[in-house]
């Protein structure tokens, strides 16, 4: 083992200026590459929804577009904070909770404006069981990109940082999935999209706890 003064000599000799925005750049690269892989995977494996051109004029399409994206943005904020020693992600947590509450309210509103015999259809749609599975699948490439991001940073709460990465990956994965998914009901979105993203968060925390050690 070298002595500390020699170590300091070596570290000083290795000093290079660190450009501002290094952390953000790394996140952008990780999410960009992971997201691209995930988008290609979705198009080749699941395919874009056939009625995409018409769907862009509907509210349900935009709800499905905005909700996962908001959770993805909350994930970005979380990773940027939690990737730093001692970082906390209160702002990200507030944004995520607000998005979930908003979608739950939309779901309740749609239930209240519908006759009871429609409830089952609104909740289950035609792809309820597959939706969370697809979301987690599409989140995986993004999560792998984020493991690369976080391993270059310095998270000190590994499970929490992993959960943040899971939120980002789940949000963006669900957003990509929405270009395939033809479901239109708010209760479906509030339940199955949320479940897919929550599963990503949980898996992210579990994996992060072991993989992110530095």
């Amino acid at each position: 083992m070298t002595a500390t003064p020699e170590l300091i000599d070596a570290l000083v000799a290795d000093l290079r200026p660190v450009p501002a925005g290094t952390v953000w750049r790394r996140i952008a690269i990780g999410v960009g590459v992971g997201g691209l892989v995930s988008a290609v995977l979705m198009v080749l494996w699941l395919g874009l929804r056939a009625d995409l051109a018409d769907a862009v004029w509907t509210t349900s399409y935009w709800a499905k577009f905005i909700y996962p994206l908001l959770l993805g943005i909350a994930g970005v904020l979380a990773v940027e904070r939690l990737g730093r020693p001692g970082g906390r992600a209160k702002r990200a947590a507030r944004l995520a909770v607000a998005a979930v509450v908003a979608v739950l309210l939309l779901a309740v509103a749609q239930f209240m404006n519908s006759p009871p015999e429609m409830y089952r259809g609104l909740l289950m749609g035609s792809s309820a069981m597959l939706c969370p599975f697809y979301i987690v699948s599409l989140a995986t490439p993004i999560y792998l990109g984020l493991l690369w991001v976080l391993r270059g940073l310095a998270p000190t709460r590994l499970a929490v940082a992993g959960a943040g990465a899971g939120l980002l990956a789940g949000g963006v994965g669900a957003w990509i999935y929405a270009f395939h998914c033809g479901e239109t009901a708010m209760p479906f979105l509030a339940t199955w999209y949320s479940l897919g993203i929550v599963a990503s968060v949980a898996l992210g925390a579990l994996v992060g706890r072991y993989v992110l050690r530095w």
Binding site: M1, T2, T4, L7, I8, L11, D14, L15, V18, T22, V23, G83, R84, P85, L153, A154, W214
Partner: peptide
């Protein structure tokens, strides 16, 4: 101490 100094060096970009 040395491990931490090396971490400071390797992870210095994470200081906001």
């Amino acid at each position: 101490v040395q491990d931490t100094l090396m971490a400071v060096h390797a992870k210095r970009a994470t200081y906001d």
